[in-house]
Design a protein around this nucleic acid. Structure first.
Length: 368
DNA sequence: CAGTCAATAT
DNA sequence: CATATTGACT
């Protein structure tokens, strides 16, 4: 990269600043702006998380007081790490333990709260260094995978912050193959090499419970990922993930992590034709607390359009949710040539989706 | 654009 | 394996 492009990069750095202490937030933001960084500041970790997850804006570095009152600090951290963004942790207290945890989970640097100008002026160096490092790593990745073999790769991918079960398993595996006490060595290595993981949320009973709650509120025929996403209000949980889960639930009966073990019973009930927006058909086992079935007067204040003939597009404000796709059944006679008419924009699914993280709900306390 | 599905990838 | 992603369709 030429000096010129470095120069360009420096002045294009977008900082996501997160701090629930609004005073500190403002002053730090001001300083950052003085350094001519682009700054977006939010107070809550969950807000930052949503910003990152939405993918609507690009960030280069995250500075966060991870001690967010909404308890999403570490979720934010993980999200940022998943997105290969360097995270600088700003702590208001002298909390070595927190700092350690953050570092373990991929934070780039921990600093004491009143941010200093000298430090901020150096931010760009961190960003650049990280970017370079990430690129290098990616190269190594494409080059080295075949050679290195599975076990190491698996280890690196699976040694998430959270799941000790896998970690233990893998450690055993490693011991089996090479009997050295390299555990710590690997940890160290991983710290430097950064933990990279294909993030994959776990649909725990809690999370699924929220899902089901949301679904209960939307009725049959109105059950769409976007609405569910809104209702669930779980920062970082994306529409795609919800859609995927929904698909899964509608197809086979989804089993929670618990009963997954207990009953390997495959009652493959034949699938009937389904309608769009339909509810998933789950076994009772998958209903956590929410008793949806009991009172079918869920339709409390729901005065929606009768779902019938709204077909003629309602030119309602486009900014708000207005639509109800008017699918009828699937499987029309199809195969009717729909010529090249609209190949025009064979677009990707909307980029509102990004990665998420496991144990979303463990750290979540806002139970509705 | 958003939902949906089957197929496929991780 | 459970989830994520994709492509084609409505």
């Amino acid at each position: 990269m030429s000096n010129a492009s470095y120069h360009a990069l420096i002045h294009d750095i977008h900082v996501l600043l997160v701090d629930h202490d609004s005073e500190g937030l403002i002053s730090t933001a001001k300083m950052l702006e003085l350094c001519s960084y682009k700054v977006t500041s939010v107070e809550l970790a969950s807000s930052g998380l949503s910003l990152l997850s939405s993918g609507h804006s690009h960030f280069d570095i995250v500075m966060a007081n991870i001690n967010s009152p909404d308890l999403h600090g570490f979720n934010l951290l993980q999200q940022a790490v998943d997105m290969d963004l360097p995270v600088i942790l700003m702590s208001d207290e002298d909390n070595a333990f927190l700092a350690m945890r953050a570092l373990q989970n991929g934070a780039f640097l921990c600093m004491q709260k009143p941010a200093k100008m000298e430090m901020l002026t150096c931010l760009w160096q961190h960003v650049l260094r990280e970017k370079k490092w990430i690129c290098k790593e990616k190269e190594r990745e494409v080059a080295g995978i075949e050679i290195r073999g599975d076990f190491r790769e698996e280890y690196i991918n699976d040694i998430g912050v959270d799941n000790m079960k896998n970690e233990d398993k893998l450690k055993e595996k490693i011991r089996g193959e090479k009997r050295k006490n390299e555990d710590e060595e690997y940890d160290l290595e991983n710290r430097n090499k950064r933990i990279k993981r294909k993030s994959c949320i776990e649909w725990t009973q809690q999370l699924h419970g929220k899902f089901m709650d949301a679904i209960a509120q939307l009725g049959e025929g109105r059950c769409f990922p976007k609405e569910i996403q809104d209702l669930m209000n779980v920062p970082g949980l994306t529409r795609m993930q919800i859609a995927s889960h929904l698909q899964k639930c509608r197809n086979h009966n989804w089993l929670g992590p618990q009963e997954r073990k207990s009953l390997p019973t495959r009652t493959h009930t034949q699938e009937e034709a389904r309608k769009f927006g339909s509810l998933p058909r789950l076994g009772k086992t998958s209903f956590p607390r929410c008793q949806i079935e009991e009172n079918h007067e869920i339709n409390r204040g729901n005065e929606f359009m009768p779902n019938d003939g709204g077909h003629g597009n309602r030119p309602i404000a486009p900014t708000l949710r207005s639509h109800q796709p008017h699918y009828e059944p699937f499987l029309s006679s199809s195969s009717n040539a729909t010529p090249a008419t609209n190949f025009s924009l064979n677009r990707r699914h909307q980029a509102d989706d990004f990665y998420s993280f496991p144990d979303i709900d463990d750290l979540i306390c806002n139970k509705n």
